[in-house]
Amino acid sequence: MTDTHIASAFDRDLETIQAHIMKMGGLVEDAILKAATSLETRDEELAEQVRNADRAIDELEEQINEEAARIIAVRQPAAVDLRVILSVMKIASNLERIGDYAKNMAKRTTVLSQMGQIHGATASIRRMAKEVERMLKDVLDAFVQRDAGTAREVMHRDEDVDQMYNALFREFLTFMMEDPRNITACMHLHFIAKNTERMGDHATNIAEQVIYLVTGEIPEDKRPKSDRTSTDPSVAPA
């Protein structure tokens, strides 16, 4: 099959909407890294930047949805074109959600920088955020390359993020038990860790959409679940 439609305007529409996804993805990756850095370096100004940048992400999502609606109305896309539109809409809403979590991390940074340091926590979160950002980058590359293999690999990497979260969960519990004055900071940090773990889940959702786009089928094998904090009492220290 050739890549070009007989109606070349249709090609331009599809290219534009996918370019907007990539732009949105770039902004979201940036937000994740900056939010994590601001947390670690207690950089309130950077945190403020992240909070303000979220608006652009939201606006892009809206724009993508409008473009998708217009393409559906005007072009009645079928087969792979239809899958592009459907996956683009879902990817946009997942990206928007990741952006919200990054913004939330930045918000908490502003609060946390007024409190005592929790040893090692922010560096661990930064590493976790870095891994999520890499997943996101790879899955968006897979989207552009129509590469289902890379998308599957990204789904599996979510397991690592879940493990990192489990470790942090335990650490925070320990800190809180050691000294109740740590509770406020640890609660905030725990939310950040949990939200970062959720970002990984959203990256996994995007990977599913990429697989659907390429193969026409939603992957059946349930993605690996390694966040055991909600089911396994032994995760928490006695």
Binding site: M1, A79, R83, E217
Partner: peptide
């Protein structure tokens, strides 16, 4: 056929590509 055709020629035709 309209969401996930198996043959490339079908896909080209229903998506309006030159096939």
């Amino acid at each position: 056929i309209f969401t996930n055709p198996k043959d490339e020629r079908t896909e080209s035709y229903i998506t309006g590509r030159i096939g």
